[in-house]
Amino acid sequence: MSTQHSPESDKELWQSFASAPAVVPAAISDMDFAAWLEGGLTEQEAARIDAAVAASPQLRLAAIELADILGKPLPQPSPRIAVRAQALVGFPAEKPASGLSRLLGMLLPSFEGGFGLQRGVMAAAAVMVAAVGFMMGGGLGESYAQEKYASVQSKTTVSNPLGSDTSDQLNDLFTDTL
């Protein structure tokens, strides 16, 4: 085994070579890089990633940093991270609606707010229907006017339906005889 050269001369030797590869390796996916970091690839698969990492200072830095992070205890993060991230999932997403359902959606109330809201909306709709019906029927003022008109008519036109009133004449007869 040759041990005549020092580590410094090894470094100088390496630095005397061009570092740029003749052919730029193809980009690697996050999944490939993760598999490579875990050392679970075959020699042939790993060689492709080795070439890409050797050619890219950014990938070498990524490998150094990620190996360091994955080998150490992790500090607790700010609770805001989890709170904000948890809010990303679980709320109904807005979906593109068809023409008819979009029209119905505009005209009809949405009941996604719960049963209480549903009951409130139904009650309000019932009150509105009743009010409109009452208004169309004329309301209180018109029905009262009709009733009053009818009673006046009965006094004027149907005052003596059996001919002349004889009650006063009968009274006079009885009082004269007494």
Binding site: D30, M31, F33, A34, A35, L37, E38, G40, A62, E65, L66, I69, L70
Partner: peptide, 20 residues
Amino acid sequence: KTYDPARAGLPTWLAVVSRS
């Protein structure tokens, strides 16, 4: 859905995705 558990652990893949 692109994560493949047969190829790497979830923490390692997640670390790579986070760095990117």
